[in-house]
Design a protein around this nucleic acid. Structure first.
Lengths: 119, 119
DNA sequence: GTGGGTTCGAATCCCGCCGTTCCGACCATT
DNA sequence: AATGGTCGGAACGGCGGGATTCGAACCCAC
């Protein structure tokens, strides 16, 4: 069984600009080494790096990580699926699925229009 | 990268009532042993069993399997995630999103009806 | 009924995803 | 300078998700 990890209950993000990997780890309940690993897997996750290659995460990075976390731990995506989801590919599928339905509705409405016209 | 498996291009389901596991395997492009495995993982997948414990799949079963297949191979869910998805937890989110849209369409159609009536 | 293909459940095997652990070196704060 | 966090890289590991194998039962065509 998938255990929902209650993303909602994560701590409030403090009002500062930059966070170390350790801080982000706490804020997102994800171990530092996992954060480094995710960085390889998700191109959109690119914290600033300074002296000695140290990572400095911004607030948006923290939100990105929480989103990834939700996709993986709550929604039950694989890493590949989460990446696809983040890059918006599935939104397109949804959209096409949707437009298909809409097209069908349109053609049905056109038939209805025919009926109305011939009366 | 996740390779979309083009669920759309699966063969049309023949117009008969029952299918053997081999037929379903072809119809869904999923090996028989995987179908048996999925049966353990997805409670809603319960083909009828007859003489000698043989599986007889109905059309709805075929559709269910295609759906599972899409969740796993196209959308990138884990089995746990797909199960959660199938059991309708996330579907509720989708549904509310959907019903919102449908409501909007209905109100627009009602406006259209008004126009037609006053003419 | 007889032969060839299909299916059965259960056991076993296996590969790759998703981390995890180790490492010596570097950095920051006291 | 001492303590504790962080660095990258490589080696290691669990286990999810099948894949393979087995002998036996079954079905259909002939």
């Amino acid at each position: 069984m998938l255990e929902p990890s209650h993303n909602d209950e994560l701590p409030v993000i403090p009002g500062k600009r930059y966070f170390t990997i350790g801080e982000v780890s706490e804020l997102c309940a994800v171990k530092p080494h996992v954060l480094r690993y995710w960085e390889q897997e998700f191109p959109q996750l690119k914290p600033v790096k300074r002296r000695g290659n140290r990572r400095y995460y911004q607030r948006t990075d923290v939100l990105t990580i929480r989103q990834i976390r939700a996709l993986l731990y709550d929604q039950g995506f694989t890493i590949g699926g989460a990446r696809q989801q983040m890059s918006g590919e599935t939104a397109q599928q949804d959209a096409s699925h949707f437009s298909q339905l809409v097209n069908q509705m349109i053609s049905e409405l056109e038939q209805l229009l025919d009926v109305l016209n011939t009366k």
